[in-house]
Design a protein around this nucleic acid. Structure first.
Lengths: 330, 330
DNA sequence: CTGAAAGCGCTTACAG
DNA sequence: CTGAAAGCGCTTACAG
């Protein structure tokens, strides 16, 4: 019922080989053949069977994308970017969401790796050894995690963090709180380190709370922990936690930006939606996604030469909105 | 380099046929054979090539999922649910995001349809005829859109809408605004119709504004249009628009819930994150996603009999939070 | 430029 | 219960 290469060949009075060439590498057949095949194929409504092609070519035209949580607003822009970039390169993307369960990552990666040309692991939560195992499944690029011997797209938190602390210090804040993310998060470690350094350099006192899950609810909880603290400003591991803090403060009748300055990280679409709007550190998720696709393609195409795995580092910067303001007088 | 069925067969001293059976239908071989094959396969690290299997079986074990916008918080829960349900059934899901461009839907569907067993189209924006064409590409289930001759998962807006209007009327609101979604949105039509009916029955005056894009920014714009209106409460096409309205009102120094009651639709995770928290009509996105997978599987498995295409209708209900309150005295 | 042949790695009637 | 054979629909050296 569905028309195959052989059907087209028969209709043209040509061999399947020739039809195949006419369609995929028109330069290698006569102009006459090319035109005829093109016409007949169109008339018959022929569309190549990608599965068959995959089998004989050893390439599926598919890449796998694994993220911790589609519902966390940090990831959708990445997913969109990967998807868009892949589509432009005629690739299709299969998606898996691990629901923030680190233990599921390897499993999902195993399944996907069998039907894709390569994998993009975004913010993987697995411990070191398991990450290495994932890397061995096939061509893999990591986003937001440095993995030895593998191409990775990293976020350089240093600049953004420094700008953030500078901003707060300039506003008169001397005691800054950091609401830590989960321990399994690689970027939490990076962020904590960067902020610690920035505070040391700029003469601010740092107090750390947490760890907290990257969810609004955790921020609500964090807000209450802040009560006895001298911190007049807090930087949250991500925007979700920051939003939770804001919501809770408002609920308690406190003014965010006056009584307490709150800053998020990610600059997710949410930041502009909150009220007051959330000052946040921009993390270029979309660029990271697109870059990851490019890197993966490089690996797939250049399977021969083994150049040192590329490591792209993307920059962060502060976006000031309304949730941060002058330190309150004491 | 990668071990195949044939390798395992040779190592076992059996034919590939037998090894294939031992692995996929153990009941059809001797216990001894079964055990041996299982052991050897494991030892050799054999994993079946899914592409080859797909080609010979005519099933890819993959389903396609097309959504308008991954970044719209209404869709992630659906995506997660589809993904989770599919994973449990040993299916992998390939995702496409059309960026709210109705014109891209058919194209993306065409590409995907060639490498999946079936398609799930969520809230498709294409006009009628093009939707029909998509339906002809292969087994397809539609979510949030009624398509003749095709299984669909629909959202029954009537209950939720009625509850919403009842709630507002009970609070003393007599003039209600509806901030319409885009014309291409099927559910916008449904919602508009349902709210119109509810208002008529409950004796409230309805004023419609829009259409607006499902984005926060559009809500900001809508808030200003409300200025001269007698409406003391508004129901927005979706939570994003509602949030925009809220943000803008707060910016203008007005109190949401007092000066103006605002209600969203979708009850997306966002609703609980806003301040004040957003009263919204719950739309069971996750259930819809899971149901869609089940329906699709039914179609795929029962290709023989042609029972009338199932049409599942999911209910909506009101979730009262803090953005709605008594009508202000005039 | 074109064709016959082999191969990609599995599955599945058909015999035995 | 097991095997030989054909087939899924394409691609690609190898000849000519």
């Amino acid at each position: 019922m569905t028309v195959t290469l052989a059907d087209v060949a028969k209709a043209c009075g040509l061999s399947p080989s020739t039809v195949s060439r006419a369609l995929s590498d028109p330069g290698r057949v006569s102009a006459q053949t090319r035109d005829k095949v093109a016409r007949v194929a169109r008339e018959m409504g022929y569309t190549p069977n990608r599965v068959a092609r995959s089998l004989s070519m050893g390439r599926t035209g598919t890449i796998g994308l694994i993220v911790p949580d589609v519902a966390n607003p940090f990831f959708p822009p990445i997913i969109k970017a990967v998807q868009a970039r892949a589509a432009r390169k005629d690739l299709v993307v299969v998606l898996a969401d691990t629901d923030e369960r680190a233990a599921d990552e390897l499993d999902r990666a195993r399944v996907l790796s069998k039907q894709v040309d390569g994998l993009i692991m975004v913010s993987p939560r697995s411990p070191e050894p398991r990450i290495a195992e994932i890397g061995r499944l096939g061509p893999t690029v990591f986003v937001n995690r440095r993995v030895p011997e593998h191409p990775s797209v990293l976020i350089d938190n240093a600049d953004g963090m420094r700008q953030a602390v500078e901003h707060l210090v300039a506003l008169g804040h001397r005691h800054i709180g950091y609401l830590a993310g989960p321990r399994r998060s690689w970027s939490n470690q990076q962020r904590h380190a960067a902020i610690t350094e920035a505070c040391a350099q700029l003469g601010a006192e740092l107090v750390t709370f947490g760890p907290f899950e990257p969810q609004v609810q955790a921020g609500v909880q964090a807000a209450d922990l802040l009560q006895g603290s001298p911190a007049t400003a807090v930087i949250a591991y991500d925007d979700l936690i920051a939003l939770g803090v804001m919501a809770r403060m408002s609920e308690r009748g406190l003014s965010v930006g006056r009584d307490l300055s709150v800053m998020g990280i990610d600059d997710s679409p949410l930041s502009g939606m909150a009220y007051p709007t959330l000052t946040s550190i921009h993390v270029p998720g979309a660029e990271a996604g697109a870059t990851a696709v490019d890197l993966l393609l490089d690996v797939l195409d250049g399977l021969h030469g083994e150049p040192p795995p590329p490591l792209v580092e993307l920059e962060t910067y502060l976006v000031v909105r309304s949730s941060t303001g002058p330190a309150p007088r004491r």
